[in-house]
Amino acid sequence: MTPPPDTPRPATPLLETRGLEAFYGDFQALFGIDFTVGEGETVAIIGSNGAGKSTFLKSITGLIANDKDAIRYEGGAIGSLPAHRVVRLGIAMVPEGRRLFPSLSVEENLLIGATAKRRGTWTLDSVYDLFPILKERRHNPGTALSGGQQQMVAVGRALMANPRLLLCDEISLGLAPVVIKDIYAAVPRITREGTTVVVVEQDINQAMAVADRVYCFQEGRVSLEGRPGALSREQITAAYFGM
């Protein structure tokens, strides 16, 4: 469900940040990020290493503490909520590097994703339906799978929380192009089931292909924003490298 071409921004955002700042101790990683995503949109965030993309996602999910009002979700201020409460509200993340639990099997990894006990379409069966290969390997240790399969488990695990908003942090990292395509092929099905998706991507082409809107981060700030079709190569390159 994409917004009509002449409204670049959604009217009632599912999630928005205003002037979001983030710090690691004394080090400032984000300098006033303004960001919105509307229900049903797919938004991509691109940018080089250290641009603050992961920090941004960690702020939203509550792994990093922020100003309460800087992040608003479904109209409520969630900036200072701890991570385990954010998930219960319906925001789930596929973390960078997948981060499966080595002591848990594939199926147990998926089950633990449902800790938040939110009702919805995503259950073990529907996740196995989305990624059939996982059903064959359900009792293997989570980390005994190939990179691509592990990524599927990570995505499935996040879906088990039946989120309204799914954040994907660099899910293409370290995977072969064929595998990346397979995983991204699942995204339309996910959005069709009613989950809004935000992806952080190093692969610009992949990001542009899947997103309705794109943000570019550069050194902790938004350097560019718009719809893929409306942005030129030069604009993107300049925004990416901060020229």
Binding site: T61, G62, L63, P82, A83, H84, V87, R88, A92, M93, P95, R99, F101, P102, S103, L104, E108, L111, I112, G113, T115, A116, K117, R157, A161
Partner: peptide
Amino acid sequence: GRAFRATSDDATTARLMGIDN
């Protein structure tokens, strides 16, 4: 027990699952 094992593996990611450490 799953929660125990997950938290033992990776306490940060456990929080992302909704586990209150």
